[in-house]
Design a protein around this nucleic acid. Structure first.
Length: 562
RNA sequence: UGGCCAAUAGUUCAGUUGGUAGAACGCCAGAUUUUGAUUCUGGAGGUCGAAGGUUCGAUCCCUUCUUGGCCAACCA
Protein backbone atom coordinates (compact mmCIF):
# COMPACT_ATOMS: atom_id res chain seq x y z
CA UNK A 1 0.00 0.00 0.00
CA UNK A 2 3.05 2.24 0.00
CA UNK A 3 3.10 5.07 -2.48
CA UNK A 4 6.03 3.69 -4.44
CA UNK A 5 4.38 0.32 -4.97
CA UNK A 6 1.38 1.54 -6.84
CA UNK A 7 2.74 4.58 -8.64
CA UNK A 8 4.29 3.04 -11.71
CA UNK A 9 3.20 5.80 -13.98
CA UNK A 10 3.69 9.30 -12.63
CA UNK A 11 0.42 10.02 -10.92
CA UNK A 12 -0.74 13.56 -11.27
CA UNK A 13 -0.19 15.56 -8.14
CA UNK A 14 -3.22 17.04 -6.42
CA UNK A 15 -3.25 20.59 -5.06
CA UNK A 16 -2.51 19.44 -1.53
CA UNK A 17 0.55 17.47 -2.50
CA UNK A 18 1.58 20.40 -4.67
CA UNK A 19 1.51 22.60 -1.61
CA UNK A 20 3.42 20.09 0.47
CA UNK A 21 6.03 19.79 -2.26
CA UNK A 22 6.36 23.56 -2.34
CA UNK A 23 6.69 23.70 1.45
CA UNK A 24 9.34 21.01 1.38
CA UNK A 25 11.13 22.95 -1.33
CA UNK A 26 11.11 26.16 0.67
CA UNK A 27 12.03 24.34 3.86
CA UNK A 28 9.06 25.81 5.72
CA UNK A 29 8.73 22.80 8.00
CA UNK A 30 12.24 21.47 7.40
CA UNK A 31 10.72 18.69 5.34
CA UNK A 32 8.40 17.52 8.12
CA UNK A 33 4.91 16.43 7.17
CA UNK A 34 2.37 15.87 9.92
CA UNK A 35 -1.38 15.54 9.52
CA UNK A 36 -4.25 14.49 11.72
CA UNK A 37 -7.72 13.08 11.48
CA UNK A 38 -9.85 15.05 13.96
CA UNK A 39 -13.36 13.65 14.41
CA UNK A 40 -15.73 14.80 17.11
CA UNK A 41 -16.81 11.68 19.02
CA UNK A 42 -20.51 12.40 18.62
CA UNK A 43 -21.39 9.70 16.10
CA UNK A 44 -19.99 6.91 13.99
CA UNK A 45 -17.73 7.43 11.01
CA UNK A 46 -19.13 7.37 7.48
CA UNK A 47 -17.91 7.42 3.90
CA UNK A 48 -17.26 11.15 4.09
CA UNK A 49 -14.88 10.62 6.99
CA UNK A 50 -13.24 7.78 5.10
CA UNK A 51 -12.08 10.22 2.46
CA UNK A 52 -10.52 12.42 5.11
CA UNK A 53 -8.93 9.43 6.86
CA UNK A 54 -7.45 8.08 3.65
CA UNK A 55 -6.20 11.52 2.66
CA UNK A 56 -4.56 12.37 5.95
CA UNK A 57 -2.99 8.99 6.53
CA UNK A 58 -1.81 8.53 2.96
CA UNK A 59 -0.24 11.99 3.02
CA UNK A 60 1.72 10.96 6.07
CA UNK A 61 2.69 7.67 4.43
CA UNK A 62 3.72 9.26 1.15
CA UNK A 63 5.93 11.84 2.81
CA UNK A 64 7.27 9.59 5.52
CA UNK A 65 5.45 11.71 8.06
CA UNK A 66 3.10 11.32 10.99
CA UNK A 67 -0.67 11.21 11.28
CA UNK A 68 -2.51 11.30 14.60
CA UNK A 69 -6.06 10.47 15.42
CA UNK A 70 -7.30 13.39 17.47
CA UNK A 71 -10.67 13.41 19.11
CA UNK A 72 -12.07 16.92 18.94
CA UNK A 73 -13.91 16.56 22.22
CA UNK A 74 -14.63 20.17 23.05
CA UNK A 75 -18.40 19.89 23.41
CA UNK A 76 -19.47 17.60 26.25
CA UNK A 77 -23.15 17.78 25.30
CA UNK A 78 -23.07 15.34 22.43
CA UNK A 79 -20.01 13.22 23.00
CA UNK A 80 -19.84 9.67 24.18
CA UNK A 81 -17.27 6.98 25.03
CA UNK A 82 -18.98 4.52 22.67
CA UNK A 83 -18.23 6.85 19.80
CA UNK A 84 -14.60 7.21 20.87
CA UNK A 85 -14.20 3.43 20.88
CA UNK A 86 -16.16 2.98 17.68
CA UNK A 87 -14.18 5.59 15.78
CA UNK A 88 -10.85 4.10 16.75
CA UNK A 89 -12.10 0.66 15.75
CA UNK A 90 -13.31 1.97 12.40
CA UNK A 91 -10.07 3.79 11.60
CA UNK A 92 -8.14 0.59 12.26
CA UNK A 93 -10.59 -1.45 10.21
CA UNK A 94 -10.04 0.92 7.29
CA UNK A 95 -6.40 -0.06 7.55
CA UNK A 96 -4.68 2.78 9.36
CA UNK A 97 -2.85 2.85 12.66
CA UNK A 98 -2.61 6.34 14.12
CA UNK A 99 0.84 7.48 15.15
CA UNK A 100 -0.84 8.36 18.42
CA UNK A 101 -4.36 8.79 19.69
CA UNK A 102 -4.82 12.18 21.29
CA UNK A 103 -7.64 14.35 22.59
CA UNK A 104 -8.29 18.06 22.35
CA UNK A 105 -9.35 17.83 25.99
CA UNK A 106 -5.76 16.94 26.87
CA UNK A 107 -4.94 20.56 26.01
CA UNK A 108 -7.63 22.29 28.06
CA UNK A 109 -5.13 23.70 30.56
CA UNK A 110 -2.79 25.02 27.85
CA UNK A 111 -5.76 26.43 25.93
CA UNK A 112 -6.91 28.15 29.09
CA UNK A 113 -3.49 29.67 29.73
CA UNK A 114 -3.35 30.92 26.17
CA UNK A 115 -6.76 32.51 26.62
CA UNK A 116 -5.50 34.36 29.69
CA UNK A 117 -2.54 35.63 27.71
CA UNK A 118 -4.94 36.94 25.07
CA UNK A 119 -6.91 38.74 27.77
CA UNK A 120 -3.75 40.24 29.22
CA UNK A 121 -2.94 41.74 25.83
CA UNK A 122 -6.50 43.07 25.48
CA UNK A 123 -7.24 40.63 22.63
CA UNK A 124 -10.19 39.00 24.35
CA UNK A 125 -13.00 40.05 26.65
CA UNK A 126 -15.79 38.60 28.73
CA UNK A 127 -19.27 39.31 27.39
CA UNK A 128 -22.36 39.13 29.61
CA UNK A 129 -24.89 39.07 26.79
CA UNK A 130 -26.91 36.05 25.77
CA UNK A 131 -26.45 34.09 22.55
CA UNK A 132 -29.35 35.74 20.81
CA UNK A 133 -28.10 39.25 21.46
CA UNK A 134 -24.61 38.39 20.36
CA UNK A 135 -25.97 36.91 17.19
CA UNK A 136 -28.04 40.00 16.44
CA UNK A 137 -25.08 42.28 17.03
CA UNK A 138 -22.95 40.29 14.62
CA UNK A 139 -24.73 42.00 11.69
CA UNK A 140 -25.07 40.47 8.26
CA UNK A 141 -23.10 39.97 5.08
CA UNK A 142 -23.79 43.51 4.01
CA UNK A 143 -24.39 45.17 7.37
CA UNK A 144 -21.69 45.88 9.93
CA UNK A 145 -21.77 44.44 13.40
CA UNK A 146 -22.24 46.38 16.62
CA UNK A 147 -19.72 46.44 19.44
CA UNK A 148 -20.83 44.75 22.62
CA UNK A 149 -21.21 47.15 25.54
CA UNK A 150 -18.79 44.88 27.43
CA UNK A 151 -16.10 45.13 24.76
CA UNK A 152 -14.30 47.93 26.60
CA UNK A 153 -13.72 46.10 29.87
CA UNK A 154 -10.13 46.34 31.06
CA UNK A 155 -7.80 43.35 30.91
CA UNK A 156 -7.76 43.21 34.70
CA UNK A 157 -11.52 43.09 34.87
CA UNK A 158 -11.68 40.48 32.12
CA UNK A 159 -9.06 38.30 33.75
CA UNK A 160 -10.95 38.29 37.04
CA UNK A 161 -14.20 37.51 35.28
CA UNK A 162 -12.67 34.73 33.17
CA UNK A 163 -11.15 33.13 36.27
CA UNK A 164 -14.57 33.42 37.88
CA UNK A 165 -16.04 31.59 34.89
CA UNK A 166 -13.65 28.74 35.39
CA UNK A 167 -14.23 28.71 39.14
CA UNK A 168 -17.95 28.31 38.75
CA UNK A 169 -19.08 31.73 39.87
CA UNK A 170 -21.51 32.09 36.99
CA UNK A 171 -24.38 30.09 35.59
CA UNK A 172 -24.29 28.28 32.26
CA UNK A 173 -24.68 30.79 29.45
CA UNK A 174 -24.29 33.76 31.74
CA UNK A 175 -20.93 34.81 30.31
CA UNK A 176 -18.67 33.96 27.39
CA UNK A 177 -15.13 34.83 26.42
CA UNK A 178 -14.85 36.49 23.04
CA UNK A 179 -11.90 37.37 20.85
CA UNK A 180 -11.53 41.10 20.31
CA UNK A 181 -10.99 41.40 16.59
CA UNK A 182 -13.26 43.55 14.48
CA UNK A 183 -17.05 43.79 14.52
CA UNK A 184 -16.86 45.29 11.06
CA UNK A 185 -14.82 42.57 9.44
CA UNK A 186 -16.10 41.43 6.03
CA UNK A 187 -15.62 37.86 7.22
CA UNK A 188 -18.34 37.05 9.72
CA UNK A 189 -16.10 34.57 11.50
CA UNK A 190 -13.85 37.44 12.54
CA UNK A 191 -16.59 39.49 14.26
CA UNK A 192 -15.45 38.75 17.80
CA UNK A 193 -16.04 35.01 17.81
CA UNK A 194 -16.87 33.19 21.03
CA UNK A 195 -13.88 31.35 22.47
CA UNK A 196 -15.27 29.89 25.70
CA UNK A 197 -18.69 29.02 27.02
CA UNK A 198 -19.84 27.74 30.42
CA UNK A 199 -21.39 24.33 30.38
CA UNK A 200 -21.97 22.24 33.48
CA UNK A 201 -22.04 18.98 31.66
CA UNK A 202 -20.14 15.76 32.35
CA UNK A 203 -17.27 15.39 29.92
CA UNK A 204 -16.23 11.91 28.82
CA UNK A 205 -12.59 12.46 29.74
CA UNK A 206 -12.38 15.45 32.08
CA UNK A 207 -15.51 14.61 34.02
CA UNK A 208 -16.44 17.66 36.10
CA UNK A 209 -12.94 19.18 36.19
CA UNK A 210 -13.95 21.81 33.68
CA UNK A 211 -17.12 23.78 33.33
CA UNK A 212 -15.81 26.12 30.65
CA UNK A 213 -15.15 24.65 27.25
CA UNK A 214 -13.26 26.07 24.28
CA UNK A 215 -15.09 26.36 20.98
CA UNK A 216 -13.87 24.67 17.81
CA UNK A 217 -12.17 27.86 16.66
CA UNK A 218 -10.20 28.29 19.84
CA UNK A 219 -9.26 24.63 20.16
CA UNK A 220 -8.54 23.40 16.69
CA UNK A 221 -5.56 25.37 15.43
CA UNK A 222 -3.91 25.34 18.82
CA UNK A 223 -4.32 21.57 19.10
CA UNK A 224 -2.68 21.30 15.69
CA UNK A 225 0.14 23.53 16.89
CA UNK A 226 0.65 21.61 20.12
CA UNK A 227 0.97 18.36 18.21
CA UNK A 228 3.26 20.06 15.68
CA UNK A 229 0.92 19.38 12.80
CA UNK A 230 2.22 20.96 9.62
CA UNK A 231 -0.69 20.53 7.22
CA UNK A 232 -4.14 20.80 8.73
CA UNK A 233 -6.53 19.38 6.16
CA UNK A 234 -10.24 20.06 6.47
CA UNK A 235 -13.33 20.36 4.32
CA UNK A 236 -14.33 23.34 2.21
CA UNK A 237 -16.90 24.79 4.58
CA UNK A 238 -14.10 25.77 6.95
CA UNK A 239 -12.43 28.07 4.46
CA UNK A 240 -13.96 31.15 6.03
CA UNK A 241 -12.52 30.01 9.36
CA UNK A 242 -8.98 30.05 8.03
CA UNK A 243 -8.32 33.73 8.82
CA UNK A 244 -9.48 33.05 12.37
CA UNK A 245 -7.34 29.91 12.57
CA UNK A 246 -4.39 32.06 11.55
CA UNK A 247 -5.32 34.94 13.86
CA UNK A 248 -5.36 32.67 16.92
CA UNK A 249 -2.01 31.14 16.13
CA UNK A 250 -0.34 34.40 15.16
CA UNK A 251 -1.22 35.82 18.54
CA UNK A 252 0.32 33.00 20.57
CA UNK A 253 3.75 31.62 21.35
CA UNK A 254 3.87 28.33 19.47
CA UNK A 255 6.09 25.32 20.13
CA UNK A 256 6.77 24.88 16.39
CA UNK A 257 6.19 26.48 13.01
CA UNK A 258 2.61 27.56 12.51
CA UNK A 259 0.47 24.84 10.89
CA UNK A 260 -1.51 25.79 7.82
CA UNK A 261 -5.07 24.89 7.03
CA UNK A 262 -5.95 23.59 3.56
CA UNK A 263 -9.49 22.82 2.50
CA UNK A 264 -10.72 20.11 0.14
CA UNK A 265 -14.16 19.19 -1.18
CA UNK A 266 -16.01 16.63 0.89
CA UNK A 267 -17.20 13.40 -0.68
CA UNK A 268 -20.73 13.11 -1.98
CA UNK A 269 -22.19 9.94 -3.44
CA UNK A 270 -25.35 9.42 -5.42
CA UNK A 271 -28.22 7.86 -3.47
CA UNK A 272 -26.32 8.56 -0.26
CA UNK A 273 -26.47 11.01 2.60
CA UNK A 274 -23.53 11.64 4.87
CA UNK A 275 -25.14 14.02 7.29
CA UNK A 276 -24.73 12.62 10.78
CA UNK A 277 -27.93 14.32 11.80
CA UNK A 278 -29.96 12.72 9.01
CA UNK A 279 -28.41 9.30 9.51
CA UNK A 280 -29.37 9.56 13.15
CA UNK A 281 -32.99 10.07 12.14
CA UNK A 282 -32.91 6.83 10.16
CA UNK A 283 -31.51 4.96 13.13
CA UNK A 284 -33.93 6.47 15.61
CA UNK A 285 -37.11 6.10 13.60
CA UNK A 286 -36.31 2.48 12.81
CA UNK A 287 -35.88 2.91 9.05
CA UNK A 288 -32.70 0.92 9.46
CA UNK A 289 -31.60 -1.53 12.14
CA UNK A 290 -28.86 0.66 13.56
CA UNK A 291 -25.64 2.47 12.77
CA UNK A 292 -24.22 -0.77 11.44
CA UNK A 293 -27.15 -1.66 9.20
CA UNK A 294 -25.68 -2.85 5.89
CA UNK A 295 -27.59 -0.13 4.07
CA UNK A 296 -25.94 2.64 6.07
CA UNK A 297 -23.01 4.58 4.57
CA UNK A 298 -21.21 4.27 7.88
CA UNK A 299 -17.93 2.36 8.03
CA UNK A 300 -19.63 -0.11 10.37
CA UNK A 301 -22.49 -0.51 7.95
CA UNK A 302 -20.18 -1.08 5.03
CA UNK A 303 -18.14 -3.56 7.02
CA UNK A 304 -21.26 -5.53 7.86
CA UNK A 305 -22.29 -5.31 4.23
CA UNK A 306 -18.98 -6.88 3.24
CA UNK A 307 -17.23 -3.94 1.63
CA UNK A 308 -13.50 -4.67 1.83
CA UNK A 309 -11.50 -1.87 3.40
CA UNK A 310 -8.94 -2.23 0.60
CA UNK A 311 -11.61 -1.44 -1.97
CA UNK A 312 -12.68 1.68 -0.10
CA UNK A 313 -9.07 2.81 0.03
CA UNK A 314 -8.61 2.16 -3.68
CA UNK A 315 -11.76 4.12 -4.43
CA UNK A 316 -10.59 7.10 -2.38
CA UNK A 317 -7.23 6.99 -4.06
CA UNK A 318 -8.88 6.94 -7.45
CA UNK A 319 -11.23 9.88 -6.93
CA UNK A 320 -8.44 12.02 -5.53
CA UNK A 321 -8.88 15.42 -3.93
CA UNK A 322 -9.88 18.75 -5.37
CA UNK A 323 -11.71 21.91 -4.40
CA UNK A 324 -14.60 21.22 -6.75
CA UNK A 325 -17.80 20.05 -5.10
CA UNK A 326 -18.69 16.80 -6.73
CA UNK A 327 -21.10 13.94 -6.50
CA UNK A 328 -19.58 10.59 -7.34
CA UNK A 329 -21.64 7.80 -8.75
CA UNK A 330 -22.11 5.06 -6.20
CA UNK A 331 -21.62 2.59 -9.04
CA UNK A 332 -18.01 3.64 -9.20
CA UNK A 333 -17.55 2.62 -5.57
CA UNK A 334 -19.32 -0.64 -6.31
CA UNK A 335 -17.02 -1.36 -9.21
CA UNK A 336 -14.06 -1.08 -6.83
CA UNK A 337 -15.84 -3.43 -4.43
CA UNK A 338 -16.33 -5.97 -7.23
CA UNK A 339 -12.75 -5.71 -8.43
CA UNK A 340 -11.40 -6.46 -4.98
CA UNK A 341 -13.90 -9.19 -4.17
CA UNK A 342 -13.39 -10.88 -7.54
CA UNK A 343 -9.76 -11.32 -6.55
CA UNK A 344 -10.26 -12.69 -3.07
CA UNK A 345 -13.74 -14.16 -2.65
CA UNK A 346 -14.28 -17.91 -2.59
CA UNK A 347 -16.89 -19.18 -5.09
CA UNK A 348 -19.84 -21.07 -3.67
CA UNK A 349 -23.25 -22.11 -4.93
CA UNK A 350 -26.47 -20.83 -3.44
CA UNK A 351 -30.01 -20.71 -4.77
CA UNK A 352 -31.90 -17.61 -3.73
CA UNK A 353 -35.32 -18.44 -5.20
CA UNK A 354 -35.44 -22.21 -5.31
CA UNK A 355 -37.19 -24.30 -7.95
CA UNK A 356 -37.13 -28.08 -7.59
CA UNK A 357 -35.44 -30.14 -10.29
CA UNK A 358 -35.96 -33.89 -10.32
CA UNK A 359 -33.54 -35.93 -12.36
CA UNK A 360 -35.70 -38.80 -13.48
CA UNK A 361 -32.91 -41.10 -14.65
CA UNK A 362 -30.77 -40.63 -11.54
CA UNK A 363 -30.17 -43.96 -9.79
CA UNK A 364 -32.58 -44.13 -6.85
CA UNK A 365 -31.00 -43.08 -3.56
CA UNK A 366 -27.52 -42.58 -5.01
CA UNK A 367 -25.47 -39.56 -4.12
CA UNK A 368 -22.34 -38.25 -5.65
CA UNK A 369 -19.59 -35.73 -4.88
CA UNK A 370 -18.58 -33.16 -7.48
CA UNK A 371 -15.32 -31.27 -7.36
CA UNK A 372 -15.65 -27.51 -7.76
CA UNK A 373 -13.05 -24.78 -8.07
CA UNK A 374 -12.91 -22.37 -5.15
CA UNK A 375 -11.63 -19.35 -7.00
CA UNK A 376 -10.66 -19.30 -10.67
CA UNK A 377 -8.72 -16.09 -10.03
CA UNK A 378 -6.57 -17.75 -7.41
CA UNK A 379 -5.05 -21.21 -7.99
CA UNK A 380 -3.98 -21.54 -4.39
CA UNK A 381 -7.63 -21.47 -3.27
CA UNK A 382 -7.99 -25.11 -4.39
CA UNK A 383 -11.17 -27.09 -4.83
CA UNK A 384 -13.97 -28.52 -2.71
CA UNK A 385 -16.44 -31.39 -2.88
CA UNK A 386 -20.08 -30.54 -3.52
CA UNK A 387 -22.73 -33.20 -2.98
CA UNK A 388 -24.97 -34.02 -5.94
CA UNK A 389 -28.18 -36.05 -6.04
CA UNK A 390 -31.36 -36.70 -8.00
CA UNK A 391 -33.19 -33.79 -6.41
CA UNK A 392 -31.77 -30.34 -6.80
CA UNK A 393 -32.65 -26.71 -6.32
CA UNK A 394 -32.07 -24.33 -9.18
CA UNK A 395 -32.89 -20.65 -9.54
CA UNK A 396 -36.44 -19.90 -10.69
CA UNK A 397 -34.93 -17.49 -13.24
CA UNK A 398 -32.94 -20.29 -14.77
CA UNK A 399 -35.98 -22.10 -16.10
CA UNK A 400 -38.59 -20.69 -18.47
CA UNK A 401 -41.60 -22.45 -19.88
CA UNK A 402 -41.97 -19.72 -22.43
CA UNK A 403 -38.43 -18.37 -22.91
CA UNK A 404 -37.90 -14.77 -24.04
CA UNK A 405 -35.58 -14.11 -27.01
CA UNK A 406 -31.89 -14.83 -26.41
CA UNK A 407 -32.67 -16.90 -23.34
CA UNK A 408 -29.88 -19.47 -22.97
CA UNK A 409 -30.98 -21.18 -19.82
CA UNK A 410 -33.12 -24.23 -19.15
CA UNK A 411 -36.36 -24.71 -21.00
CA UNK A 412 -38.27 -27.75 -22.23
CA UNK A 413 -36.16 -29.76 -24.63
CA UNK A 414 -32.98 -27.78 -24.02
CA UNK A 415 -29.73 -29.05 -22.53
CA UNK A 416 -27.69 -26.94 -20.11
CA UNK A 417 -24.75 -27.59 -17.86
CA UNK A 418 -25.00 -27.77 -14.10
CA UNK A 419 -21.84 -26.10 -12.92
CA UNK A 420 -19.21 -28.69 -11.97
CA UNK A 421 -21.95 -31.34 -12.44
CA UNK A 422 -23.63 -32.81 -15.49
CA UNK A 423 -25.50 -31.78 -18.57
CA UNK A 424 -29.25 -31.98 -18.02
CA UNK A 425 -32.19 -31.70 -20.38
CA UNK A 426 -35.64 -30.56 -19.28
CA UNK A 427 -38.51 -32.79 -20.36
CA UNK A 428 -41.51 -31.99 -18.32
CA UNK A 429 -42.90 -29.78 -15.56
CA UNK A 430 -45.29 -30.06 -12.66
CA UNK A 431 -47.51 -27.02 -12.13
CA UNK A 432 -49.77 -25.88 -9.32
CA UNK A 433 -53.41 -24.85 -9.66
CA UNK A 434 -52.41 -21.38 -10.84
CA UNK A 435 -50.19 -22.79 -13.55
CA UNK A 436 -46.92 -21.93 -11.78
CA UNK A 437 -44.10 -24.35 -12.35
CA UNK A 438 -43.29 -26.12 -9.09
CA UNK A 439 -41.02 -28.86 -10.38
CA UNK A 440 -38.97 -29.49 -13.48
CA UNK A 441 -38.30 -33.03 -14.58
CA UNK A 442 -35.00 -33.54 -16.33
CA UNK A 443 -32.71 -36.29 -17.49
CA UNK A 444 -28.97 -36.13 -17.07
CA UNK A 445 -26.20 -37.51 -19.26
CA UNK A 446 -23.87 -39.68 -17.10
CA UNK A 447 -21.13 -39.19 -19.70
CA UNK A 448 -20.92 -35.49 -18.87
CA UNK A 449 -19.66 -35.85 -15.29
CA UNK A 450 -17.61 -32.80 -14.43
CA UNK A 451 -19.38 -30.73 -17.04
CA UNK A 452 -17.79 -31.82 -20.30
CA UNK A 453 -19.35 -33.94 -23.06
CA UNK A 454 -17.06 -36.63 -24.53
CA UNK A 455 -18.56 -35.99 -27.99
CA UNK A 456 -17.63 -32.35 -27.71
CA UNK A 457 -21.15 -30.98 -27.93
CA UNK A 458 -21.62 -27.57 -26.40
CA UNK A 459 -24.32 -25.98 -24.28
CA UNK A 460 -25.15 -22.30 -24.18
CA UNK A 461 -25.63 -21.98 -20.46
CA UNK A 462 -24.13 -23.13 -17.21
CA UNK A 463 -26.37 -22.78 -14.19
CA UNK A 464 -25.76 -23.19 -10.49
CA UNK A 465 -27.58 -25.64 -8.25
CA UNK A 466 -27.75 -27.06 -4.75
CA UNK A 467 -28.51 -30.67 -3.88
CA UNK A 468 -31.83 -30.76 -2.03
CA UNK A 469 -30.99 -33.42 0.55
CA UNK A 470 -27.90 -31.65 1.89
CA UNK A 471 -28.95 -28.04 1.33
CA UNK A 472 -28.45 -25.59 4.17
CA UNK A 473 -31.25 -23.12 4.78
CA UNK A 474 -30.32 -19.50 5.18
CA UNK A 475 -31.83 -16.09 5.35
CA UNK A 476 -30.37 -13.79 2.71
CA UNK A 477 -30.86 -10.05 2.64
CA UNK A 478 -30.89 -8.39 -0.76
CA UNK A 479 -30.32 -4.66 -0.71
CA UNK A 480 -31.40 -1.92 -3.03
CA UNK A 481 -30.57 1.79 -2.77
CA UNK A 482 -31.64 3.21 0.60
CA UNK A 483 -32.70 6.41 -1.15
CA UNK A 484 -34.23 6.30 -4.60
CA UNK A 485 -33.29 9.90 -5.40
CA UNK A 486 -29.77 9.99 -6.87
CA UNK A 487 -29.31 13.45 -5.34
CA UNK A 488 -31.16 13.32 -2.03
CA UNK A 489 -31.80 16.75 -0.61
CA UNK A 490 -31.23 18.66 -3.82
CA UNK A 491 -33.59 21.52 -4.51
CA UNK A 492 -34.59 22.01 -0.87
CA UNK A 493 -36.27 18.62 -0.61
CA UNK A 494 -35.97 16.57 2.53
CA UNK A 495 -33.09 14.14 1.90
CA UNK A 496 -35.10 11.40 3.56
CA UNK A 497 -38.21 11.93 1.44
CA UNK A 498 -37.02 9.44 -1.14
CA UNK A 499 -36.48 6.68 1.39
CA UNK A 500 -36.90 3.40 -0.48
CA UNK A 501 -39.48 1.21 1.28
CA UNK A 502 -38.03 -1.82 -0.55
CA UNK A 503 -34.39 -1.24 0.25
CA UNK A 504 -34.22 -4.67 1.86
CA UNK A 505 -35.72 -7.89 0.61
CA UNK A 506 -35.29 -11.07 2.57
CA UNK A 507 -35.32 -14.44 0.85
CA UNK A 508 -34.97 -17.96 2.18
CA UNK A 509 -32.18 -19.53 0.25
CA UNK A 510 -30.70 -22.99 -0.19
CA UNK A 511 -26.95 -23.16 0.23
CA UNK A 512 -24.35 -25.78 -0.54
CA UNK A 513 -23.06 -27.42 2.66
CA UNK A 514 -19.67 -25.68 2.57
CA UNK A 515 -21.46 -22.43 3.36
CA UNK A 516 -22.29 -23.72 6.81
CA UNK A 517 -18.63 -23.21 7.68
CA UNK A 518 -18.04 -19.58 6.71
CA UNK A 519 -16.45 -17.27 9.21
CA UNK A 520 -18.55 -14.41 10.57
CA UNK A 521 -18.09 -11.46 8.25
CA UNK A 522 -16.55 -13.53 5.47
CA UNK A 523 -17.52 -12.53 1.94
CA UNK A 524 -18.01 -15.21 -0.71
CA UNK A 525 -19.27 -15.14 -4.25
CA UNK A 526 -22.54 -16.94 -4.83
CA UNK A 527 -21.81 -17.98 -8.38
CA UNK A 528 -23.69 -16.03 -11.01
CA UNK A 529 -25.43 -13.94 -8.36
CA UNK A 530 -23.04 -11.67 -6.57
CA UNK A 531 -20.96 -11.27 -3.45
CA UNK A 532 -22.51 -12.07 -0.11
CA UNK A 533 -21.22 -11.44 3.39
CA UNK A 534 -21.93 -13.74 6.29
CA UNK A 535 -23.30 -11.61 9.08
CA UNK A 536 -20.81 -10.61 11.74
CA UNK A 537 -23.02 -11.82 14.59
CA UNK A 538 -25.00 -14.57 12.91
CA UNK A 539 -23.19 -16.27 10.02
CA UNK A 540 -26.31 -18.16 8.99
CA UNK A 541 -27.58 -14.83 7.70
CA UNK A 542 -26.08 -13.36 4.55
CA UNK A 543 -26.07 -9.84 3.18
CA UNK A 544 -25.70 -9.16 -0.50
CA UNK A 545 -22.65 -6.95 -0.70
CA UNK A 546 -23.05 -6.21 -4.39
CA UNK A 547 -24.36 -8.08 -7.41
CA UNK A 548 -22.28 -9.25 -10.34
CA UNK A 549 -22.39 -7.30 -13.56
CA UNK A 550 -25.41 -8.68 -15.34
CA UNK A 551 -25.46 -8.64 -19.13
CA UNK A 552 -28.72 -10.59 -19.22
CA UNK A 553 -30.41 -7.91 -17.15
CA UNK A 554 -29.18 -5.28 -19.62
CA UNK A 555 -30.56 -7.27 -22.54
CA UNK A 556 -33.95 -7.49 -20.89
CA UNK A 557 -33.92 -3.81 -19.98
CA UNK A 558 -33.14 -2.85 -23.57
CA UNK A 559 -35.91 -5.07 -24.84
CA UNK A 560 -38.36 -3.44 -22.46
CA UNK A 561 -37.35 0.05 -23.53
CA UNK A 562 -37.70 -0.64 -27.23
C1' U B 1 -27.84 40.92 -0.61
C1' G B 2 -21.46 40.78 0.56
C1' G B 3 -17.38 37.39 0.53
C1' C B 4 -14.98 32.79 -0.67
C1' C B 5 -14.65 28.30 -3.75
C1' A B 6 -15.73 25.95 -8.27
C1' A B 7 -17.19 25.05 -13.78
C1' U B 8 -13.15 19.94 -19.12
C1' A B 9 -16.88 13.18 -22.35
C1' G B 10 -23.28 10.37 -19.66
C1' U B 11 -20.63 10.64 -14.58
C1' U B 12 -16.26 11.74 -11.65
C1' C B 13 -11.64 13.59 -12.41
C1' A B 14 -6.46 14.46 -15.19
C1' G B 15 -4.13 17.83 -18.40
C1' U B 16 -1.95 21.93 -21.37
C1' U B 17 4.85 26.81 -17.99
C1' G B 18 -0.81 29.41 -24.03
C1' G B 19 -0.08 25.29 -29.96
C1' U B 20 -8.08 22.90 -30.09
C1' A B 21 -7.68 17.13 -25.00
C1' G B 22 -6.83 11.94 -21.71
C1' A B 23 -8.21 8.13 -17.70
C1' A B 24 -11.65 5.50 -14.83
C1' C B 25 -16.64 4.03 -14.35
C1' G B 26 -20.89 3.46 -17.47
C1' C B 27 -22.60 2.21 -22.52
C1' C B 28 -22.01 -0.60 -27.39
C1' A B 29 -19.47 -4.51 -30.38
C1' G B 30 -16.09 -8.67 -30.93
C1' A B 31 -12.74 -12.66 -28.76
C1' U B 32 -11.96 -16.04 -24.66
C1' U B 33 -14.82 -18.47 -20.85
C1' U B 34 -17.77 -24.90 -17.04
C1' U B 35 -20.21 -17.84 -13.64
C1' G B 36 -24.69 -13.94 -19.53
C1' A B 37 -18.95 -13.05 -14.21
C1' U B 38 -13.72 -12.25 -14.88
C1' U B 39 -10.03 -11.21 -18.71
C1' C B 40 -8.61 -9.15 -23.58
C1' U B 41 -9.46 -6.04 -28.02
C1' G B 42 -12.03 -2.32 -30.38
C1' G B 43 -15.94 1.59 -30.67
C1' A B 44 -19.30 5.58 -29.81
C1' G B 45 -19.22 9.88 -26.93
C1' G B 46 -16.23 16.64 -25.82
C1' U B 47 -17.59 24.09 -30.24
C1' C B 48 -12.88 22.30 -22.39
C1' G B 49 -20.16 27.10 -18.82
C1' A B 50 -21.18 32.08 -22.01
C1' A B 51 -19.54 36.71 -24.10
C1' G B 52 -15.68 40.07 -24.76
C1' G B 53 -10.22 41.25 -24.34
C1' U B 54 -4.64 40.26 -24.63
C1' U B 55 -1.91 37.13 -28.32
C1' C B 56 0.44 34.81 -34.55
C1' G B 57 -2.56 31.44 -31.61
C1' A B 58 -6.82 30.85 -25.58
C1' U B 59 -9.82 25.23 -22.85
C1' C B 60 -5.46 27.56 -20.15
C1' C B 61 -4.04 34.58 -18.89
C1' C B 62 -7.53 39.16 -17.94
C1' U B 63 -12.69 41.31 -17.52
C1' U B 64 -17.80 40.69 -17.22
C1' C B 65 -21.77 37.44 -16.97
C1' U B 66 -24.23 32.68 -15.92
C1' U B 67 -24.74 28.39 -12.95
C1' G B 68 -23.69 25.47 -8.51
C1' G B 69 -21.66 25.06 -3.42
C1' C B 70 -20.23 27.22 1.34
C1' C B 71 -20.32 31.16 5.26
C1' A B 72 -24.10 35.47 9.56
C1' A B 73 -24.39 28.42 16.20
C1' C B 74 -22.21 29.82 23.27
C1' C B 75 -21.93 22.85 16.90
C1' A B 76 -17.76 20.75 14.65
Amino acid sequence: MSASAESEKPKSVDFIREKINADNQSGLYSGRVQTRFPPEPNGYLHLGHAKSICLNFSLAEDYDGVCNLRFDDTNPETEDQDFVDGILEDVRWLGYEPNSVVYASDYFEQLYLWAESLIERDLAYVDDQDAETISEQRGGFTTPGIDSPFRTRTPEENLALFRGMRAGEFADGEKVLRAKIDMNHENMQMRDPVLYRIRREHHVRTGTDWIIFPTYDWAHGQSDAIEKVTHSICTLEFDTHRPLYDWCLENLELPAEKPEQTEFARLNLTHTITSKRKLKVLVEDGSVDGWDDPRMPTLRGMRRRGYPAAAIRAFMDHIGVSKANSVHDIELLESFIRTELNRVALRRMAVLRPLKVVITNWPEGQSDMREAINNPEDDTAGTRQVPFSGELWIEQDDFALDPPPKYYRLTIGREVRLRAGYFITANDVVTDDDGNVTEVHCTYDPETAGGQAPDGRKVKATIHWVSADTAVDAEVHLYDRLLTDPHPGSGDTDPLSSLNPNSRETVHAKLEPALADVEPGQVVQFERLGYFAADIDDPTVFHRTVGLRDEWANIQKRRQNS
